Amino acid sequence: MILFLSSCFKRSLSDDKDLQFGRSYLGEKLTSHFPNNDVFEKYVVIKDTSAYYNTMDMSLTLFDSDADKRINKVLNEYKNKNIYIDNDSCIVVLNDFINKNDLSNISNSMENNSDYIYSEPLKNYISKIYKNCTDKYKVIPNFWQGYYGGFSSQDQIADTRSHLDRNFKFIIIDSQFSDTATWSPKLDPPKSYMPDPVRHGYSRGIAFNERERIIIYWVILW
């Protein structure tokens, strides 16, 4: 996983090597919603292509004035898409068992048993799913590693399913699920941290927080 924080007067996102590597690696179809133009405030790129948890992801977070104009643009561009909140019944959070407090326990379990997720005592390491969803399920990232809105001043992870502040809302631009197929050769089809009917798939979208002036472009594969 790579975390890159930049603070500058003006910079083109098309010049950011981490972002462009991620776009090239994951493909234009999955990352076409990421902006490439100039930014004037700090921004964060997080990408994980290691498939350590049989998942891959990339996100770009913009703040303050850069976020303001893009939130308005996104709301207009995707006005026909539904807007979700963290606790909607059809939302599934990727690997929602991962957080800062128990990450070391999960890592230790993996070292001791490569198939730990399927062992009876550790079945709690499966993402939670609401059975009362009356529409199609929507999968969003687990933002446990992002300090933006996910941590309070006491450095505690937000007490939400996505680990983002409760003021965040989500737009899912595109997603696809499968029982057996994956969208990257690095992902292992027989294994999954996700429940049926979203055992494998991809999802791409945008999270935004108008109050805190934050917008996050993301893509996940599992």
Rank of each mutant, 00 (worst) to 15 (best):
K128Y: 12
L5M: 09
P189Q: 14
K138P: 01
S24W: 05
K17Q: 12
V139W: 04
L94W: 00
K73C: 02
Y217T: 02
I157C: 05
Y43I: 04
I129C: 09
L3K: 15
I171F: 06
E111T: 08
M58D: 02
L30G: 08
S104G: 04
I157H: 03
T61W: 03
A181D: 14
T182E: 10
L30C: 08
V74G: 07
N101S: 09
D88F: 00
Y84A: 06
S50K: 13
R166L: 03
W222P: 01
E212D: 15
S192K: 15
D179P: 02
V219I: 10
N95H: 09
D38H: 08
I106W: 00
I171Q: 13
L5E: 13
M1T: 04
N36T: 12
V39F: 10
W144K: 01
L187G: 11
F151D: 06
T182I: 05
I173E: 11
S192A: 10
L5N: 12
S127Q: 09
K10G: 13
R23H: 08
I216K: 08
V44P: 03
S32R: 14
Y148R: 12
P190C: 10
Y52M: 03
V45I: 13
N76S: 14
A67Q: 07
A67R: 06
F4P: 00
I106K: 01
R213W: 06
K128N: 10
I71K: 15
F34E: 13
L5Y: 12
F97D: 02
R161A: 05
F9G: 08
G205P: 07
I129R: 10
D155M: 14
N80Q: 11
V198T: 14
L3N: 15
S175K: 13
W218C: 00
Q20F: 03
Y53C: 03
S184N: 15
N112D: 14
Y116S: 01
N105H: 09
D115M: 07
L122W: 09
V198H: 08
F63V: 03
I171S: 12
D64M: 05
Y78G: 04
N99M: 02
R213C: 03
S162C: 01
K29R: 14
N54M: 08
V44E: 05
N36P: 00
G150M: 00
K191Y: 09
N209T: 03
D96I: 02
I220S: 13
P185M: 10
S32I: 03
D57I: 02
S6L: 09
S89A: 15
F97G: 01
D15F: 07
H163P: 00
C90R: 14
D57E: 15
I220G: 05
Y202I: 02
I171G: 11
I83W: 07
I216R: 14
S192P: 06
E28A: 07
K136W: 05
T31M: 06
S114N: 11
A51L: 04
K17C: 05
N99L: 01
W222R: 03
N82Y: 09
L75T: 03
D135L: 06
K17W: 10
W218Y: 13
S109H: 08
R199G: 05
A181Q: 15
S152W: 09
N54I: 02
F151S: 01
